[in-house]
């Protein structure tokens, strides 16, 4: 028994040593940032599990903010997946007035919490800066019978003939699909998958006709010529491999415009000084090279910065738009 204990103890010591090496990372003390500064580690809540887009977003913000000394106290990432954002929203909401809690806010979850009638919706929290747009586009496989968007839309006029896949329900992919159906006046059907990997798999396997996803999801396949981009849902064409895909506006369709939006949020009743502090920190983060080179670039994101006040206005408008169309389509009752 004693020997067993000794073995465990020594293993732990080794583990601790390895850990010590791994968790290194000295942080410089921050410069005074006006009247507010976090007094302890800031909890940075991520409403999805480790490894996803939101998680990466939070981790890189934390890393840059601390490394560059923008904040005197580290941002600690905490994953709280569940309820399509519902659990995380509820948790952050319960921390009213707490100035040391942040949350990643993704417009997809803003929508899903409304659609799912979660007890806490984003308007009950404090909006903080918007940091990036992730474009959405619709693609098909190279040997599809629809080689451009017009052909697809033409076929989609026949109800249920064209199957378009997207990830999740009540989310940005779904919204993009409904916008297309409404304003291009077609009747395609939506097939819902659990993630962009599954959607693309189904597309390449010939089970669906088109797919809605983000550029980073399909860059590899587009480069290899297996997938062709048909059209983009953003305001302007996306560069690089996706240059040839027109925007819906170019083709004459008004209103088919939506981006996935990445932002930050905080608990209700955060102090004005705290909000100003985070506005500053995040602005500085988005201006660093590391942000651009290690996050925006490889993930094909469009860098954007809106202060918390601007973000609030932006989201309030967006939510109205989303609610309208989802109610029309019956997703919201």
């Amino acid at each position: 028994m004693k020997k067993f204990v000794k073995i465990i103890a020594s293993t732990l010591l080794v583990g601790a040593l390895l850990t010590g090496c791994a968790s290194g990372g000295a942080g410089k003390t921050g410069e005074g940032n006006g009247s507010f500064e976090p007094k302890r580690e800031v909890e940075f809540v991520v409403p999805s599990s480790a490894g996803g887009g939101s998680d990466l977003n939070a981790r890189i913000i934390s890393e840059i903010a601390f490394k560059e000394g923008f904040t005197p106290k580290n941002f600690m990432v905490t994953n709280m997946p569940g309820g399509s954002g519902g659990v995380a929203f509820a948790d952050v909401y319960s921390k009213k007035g707490n100035n040391e809690t942040l949350m990643i806010l993704h417009n997809g979850q803003i929508m899903s919490t409304i659609v799912n009638e979660s007890p806490v919706t984003s308007d009950m929290l404090t909006y903080l800066p918007v940091v990036a747009f992730d474009n959405l586009l619709i693609v098909t496989r190279a040997d599809s019978e629809y080689q451009d968007i017009e052909a697809l839309l033409e076929a989609a006029k026949t109800p249920d003939k064209v199957k378009v896949g997207g990830s999740q329900r009540g989310n940005t992919d779904h919204l993009a699909f409904e916008l297309m159906n409404k304003y291009a006046e077609v009747e395609a059907s939506y097939v819902q998958f659990d993630g962009s990997g599954d959607v693309l798999g189904a597309l390449l396997g010939g089970h669906i006709d088109a797919a809605i996803c983000n550029p980073s999801d399909t860059l590899g396949q587009v480069q290899a010529g297996e997938v062709i981009p048909l059209a983009v849902f953003s305001q302007e064409r996306i560069g690089k491999e996706f240059e040839d895909a027109p925007t819906f506006a170019e083709l004459g369709y008004e209103g088919i415009e939506i981006d996935a939006v990445r932002a930050i949020a905080g608990p209700p009743e955060m102090s004005a000084e705290a909000i100003a502090f985070y506005d500053e920190v995040i602005r500085k983060v988005t201006e660093t090279d590391q942000w651009k080179n290690e996050y925006l670039e490889p993930n094909n994101l469009e860098g954007v910065y809106m202060t918390s006040a601007e973000a609030k206005e932006f989201f309030e408008k967006e939510i109205e738009k989303y609610k309208e169309i989802f109610t029309e389509v019956g997703v919201i009752k």
Partner: peptide, 18 residues
């Protein structure tokens, strides 16, 4: 002493699970 210490080292320090 050992068990909580082990948990602390593995879960909090290494895996950074708060």
């Amino acid at each position: 002493i050992l068990c909580p210490l082990a948990c602390y080292l593995i879960f909090v320090m290494w895996l950074k699970a708060p």
